[in-house]
Design a protein around this nucleic acid. Structure first.
Lengths: 261, 261
DNA sequence: CGCGCCTTTGAAGGAGCTCAATTTAGGTGG
DNA sequence: CCACCTAAATTGAGCTCCTTCAAAGGCGCG
């Protein structure tokens, strides 16, 4: 895995164009927030030098996870938040009867673990979908520091609030959209998030299976697969397994807004 | 409307049993958190006397809303959180194409407005479903005070986190459950929340229409109506318009866990 | 008392699910 | 390096549950 502070790309993706535009040389070794290239995406956004230094002393620890390894499980005592440094995660919730649902996918700069604050125990599972690394942010210390640093407090509140708004969109998706709209929304969202991280807006590698996408979108994997095929037939995208190219982003957007069903 | 600090009940509900168990005499006039009977449900939970006094000075203002009046609208600048004091609210999100979805129902003691923190503007509409009253909590001041009072900071974080967990459950519901399961989950949730507020667990008045329930559950109003009828045929509940009696709570719960579809 | 909104109920249609078979990709070991 | 193996993805056919469209009944409010 590279140490550039960017999310690592797997072998198969080396061939992607536009990827070479990302500087792979900036080596960030043991540095913390003050040195982190994800700075402006993360909870450290907008902090001054001194403040960053304080945050550094808090966030010392890192944790590496192999593909398929759990960062935490539902029921685990809540102690810390985690900032994704490299890699890709999913969170999922398990029902008593065995049904489960993916509730989110997290990439570099995004925060995991906030579900645990309310009850002091995690309510979902967080699993690495590829080899990944997170910054461990002990929560008690974060709260303390955010009592001292107003900007940090504000950032943290914003991160939580944005998560609430994200959830609203997902409810909207699950409650009102049909299959192809859901998938279009999903692809556009992925594209937008990859773009924000310096990757190509139009070409990316999905880390999750069709089943996981389906679970997230409230669809069966076959339905996801069929929708991918349909999009391809219509020239909206090019699909090759997990490798996706968006050929007509506008077309996808039109799919979203056009249907007052 | 009564001034007991409990959510007001409409005329038609005066006849409900168990309701008389709620003391209606405790008159809270202009008092704030320190005097509020919703104390232990709200953001003031667990605070000491002095701390409550500080919170009081912050929460001075109240706002009354008539049925169907907006507390705020999507796009409104974000300035404050609102604690429901009496009444009943819904929040909903509107899509460009006209589709909308109810994202939540809020009752006494619950906090509205957290969606606005991230972007400094509200992302949804909040509408009173009956004549209601809220405590206005200016957010900048709340942040400041929560830098001073650790317990307040913690409470606020817990409230937000619980909202995230609530959203997870709703996603689960929208993503994996069939119509009757969704409605059963909804009824049990309502019952549980009314119970926590001192009302009967088995008998309550729904403030929202079938359409709003359907919107919340990702179903059409006809489907909601049919499910109600089916539950009644099966002896699980007694429905008379918006007035619901749960006759077999266990039966409803069984509906939820039994189906690994 | 009458009007409008909400609710209920029926019948037909369709989107997505289930079940099943086949293909493909990626990893493993001979 | 190729054969093998397993997990993932694709595709088809039939079915189910929910939606759509429609009509009628009931409650509450002015």
């Amino acid at each position: 895995m590279d140490q550039s502070g960017r999310p690592s790309e797997r072998e198969s993706e080396a061939a992607l164009p536009n990827k070479s535009a990302v500087p792979v040389s900036l080596v960030t070794i043991k540095a913390a927030c003050s040195q982190c290239s994800l700075h402006e995406l993360c909870i450290s956004e907008g902090l001054g030098k001194e403040e960053l230094a304080k945050l550094d002393s808090l966030v010392g620890a890192r944790r590496k996870l192999k593909r398929q390894q759990n960062l935490y499980r539902a029921g685990d005592p809540f102690e810390a938040l985690y900032a994704v440094r490299t890699g890709f995660f999913k969170t999922d919730v398990l029902l008593e009867d065995g049904r489960d649902q993916v509730t989110g996918f997290q990439m570099a700069g995004e925060i995991l673990g906030m579900d645990g604050i309310g009850t002091e125990a995690h309510s979902c599972n967080a699993v690495a979908l590829e080899d990944s690394e997170v910054c461990v942010i002990p929560f008690a210390q974060l709260e303390q520091l955010s009592r001292e640093i107003q900007a940090l407090q504000r950032n943290f509140h914003k991160v939580m609030s944005r998560e609430l708004v994200r959830d609203q969109s997902l409810m909207m998706l699950l409650g009102t959209m049909r299959a192809e709209e859901r998938l279009a929304a999903f692809l556009l969202n992925m594209s937008q998030r990859f773009t924000a991280r310096g990757y190509s807006p139009a070409e990316f590698h999905l880390r999750m299976t069709r089943e996981e996408i389906g679970s997230y979108l409230g669809l069966k994997l076959e339905t996801v697969s069929r929708a991918f095929s349909r999009f391809q037939e219509e020239g909206l995208i090019a699909v090759q397994q997990k490798h996706i190219r968006l050929l007509d982003g506008e077309g996808l957007k039109r799919l979203l807004n056009a249907r007052p069903r």
